[in-house]
């Protein structure tokens, strides 16, 4: 602040920003660099003695060649989950912003509150809900929606459902922030100007809520793509995502170079998609 500037002199800004800058440089940027060099190292080493940097580009080709189905599956599951989150999240955010009246704060608190229960514990409870002999599966079978030998657990449906559930609040909060800023009178004005309910939504509410849509989809899609917990707990070996592979390569296989290469590929892919999407949505100031 201006007054502190007088106390510390011109360097106040650097004194204030310094700790954060140093911490993020040491433990975010530097590790990224380390990830990059590891991804180009000879896989012949091991985690204890370290890896030799040999600029081995093949790591990338091998990672891509061996694990592209995982990457594709991650993008697909995360994409579907993001769309589902957008639909569900929009409904709830809209209801809170325009229809909740004096219950607005209460409903917002209720959106956040479930997340104080550890998310692993909550995700595990989906195992119970989706279990083969659980009431949900039994009901769906009784309604002929699910075949007699059908199941939910260990299917892609379970993984996508888990992802949708886990990242829903990341969609709701930005959507709500955007919707809340819209003057309800705009809706009335559109109605006055002969717009049907659907047109009012398509021509007024939706365009004005775009910043929230962009923010929410990014906040949902990015972590969902990298997630491996839902695939691990609710899926099967056939539904594994890229996160599972990276994690397995690092821990059980101790193949750091290929694991790092896969991490870098994932990161680059996400950054490229985000940049394309943000440019397309025309909200570059978001970054």
């Amino acid at each position: 602040m201006a007054s502190l500037q007088r106390v510390f002199g011109k360097n106040a800004a650097y004194l204030l920003i310094g700790p954060a800058a140093i911490w993020l440089a040491l433990f975010f940027l530097f590790p990224m660099l380390s990830l990059l060099t590891t991804s180009l190292s000879d896989p012949a080493g091991n985690p204890i003695t370290g890896y030799d940097l040999t600029w081995r580009i093949q790591n990338y080709l091998e990672a891509l060649g061996d694990y592209w189905p995982y990457l594709l599956r991650s993008l697909l599951y995360a994409g579907i989950a993001t769309v589902l989150c957008l639909v569900l999240g929009y409904v709830l955010a809209y209801a809170i912003a325009f229809k909740a009246g004096r219950w607005k704060t209460v409903m917002l608190v209720l959106v956040i509150a479930p997340f104080f229960t550890s998310f692993l514990v909550r995700t595990l409870s989906w195992k119970l809900i989706l279990a083969d002999n659980g009431w949900l599966v039994e009901t769906l079978k009784a309604l002929w929606i699910l075949p007699e030998d059908g199941r939910l657990l260990a299917t892609p449906i379970a993984v996508v459902a888990g992802l949708t559930y886990n990242f829903l609040p990341f969609m709701i909060l930005p959507l709500y922030t955007s919707l809340e800023k819209i003057d309800p009178k705009l809706n009335e004005a559109a109605a006055d100007l002969y717009a049907s309910p659907f047109q009012r939504f398509a021509k007024v509410i939706w365009p004005l809520s775009l910043p929230g849509v962009v923010g929410g989809t990014l906040l949902t899609f990015i972590p969902a793509t990298g997630d491996y917990i839902n695939a691990e707990l609710l899926g099967s070996p056939n539904t594994q995502m890229v996160g599972n592979k990276i994690q397995a390569l690092f821990t059980t296989a101790s193949d750091y170079p290929h694991a790092s290469a896969l991490s870098v590929i994932l990161m680059v892919m996400i950054v490229a998609m985000v940049l394309y999407y943000v440019r397309k949505a025309g909200t570059e100031d978001l970054l």
Binding site: Y228, G243, I246, L266
Partner: peptide
């Protein structure tokens, strides 16, 4: 950044 990338880095 996906957590898996930060964690692995």
């Amino acid at each position: 950044t996906p957590e898996i990338v930060m964690g692995s880095s």
